[in-house]
Amino acid sequence: MTASRKGLWQIFRAPLLLAMLSSVGLIAALIGDGVFDLLSWLTLGSTLAVIIWYWAKPSV
């Protein structure tokens, strides 16, 4: 078997996106109420949804 080489961007693209979403969600939760609460729930929930999706996905 040959392993394909992946660049740094391909390796760290998804974790960086999840980290940015989490940061936005945490900052929105600290800033205010109303729309900021909705933004924080959506961004933090999206990270959790990705984790649950990969955890529940059957391994190949």
Rank of each mutant, 00 (worst) to 15 (best):
A56H: 14
V24K: 03
L18S: 03
I51K: 12
W9P: 02
I52Y: 12
L16N: 05
W53E: 15
I31L: 10
A14I: 10
V24M: 13
L44G: 08
M1D: 09
V50D: 11
G32L: 01
R5K: 08
I52H: 09
R5P: 07
F12K: 08
W9Y: 09
G45I: 02
L18F: 10
L48G: 08
A14L: 12
M1T: 08
A28G: 09
P15T: 04
L26M: 14
L42V: 08
W41G: 01
A3S: 08
D37M: 05
G25V: 06
P58Q: 05
A3C: 04
L42M: 08
L8R: 02
A49S: 13
V60L: 13
M1R: 07
I31S: 07
L44Q: 07
M1S: 11
M20T: 11
M1G: 13
A3W: 04
L44V: 07
G34T: 00
A19M: 04
W9H: 11
S22N: 09
T47R: 07
W41T: 04
W41I: 11
A28S: 15
A28K: 10
T43Q: 02
Q10E: 13
V24R: 08
A29M: 13
S22I: 11
L18W: 03
G45H: 00
L30A: 14
V50E: 14
A3Y: 05
D33L: 06
G34E: 01
S46I: 00
V60N: 08
L38F: 01
D33P: 03
S46F: 10
V35R: 01
L21F: 12
S22G: 09
A3I: 13
S23W: 09
R13P: 00
F36K: 02
S23N: 09
A14F: 10
S40R: 01
W55T: 15
T47V: 15
W41F: 11
S40L: 00
I31P: 00
I27N: 02
V24D: 06
I27Y: 10
S4M: 02
K57T: 15
M20Y: 04
A19K: 01
P58F: 01
I27M: 12
L44D: 06
G7F: 05
L30Q: 14
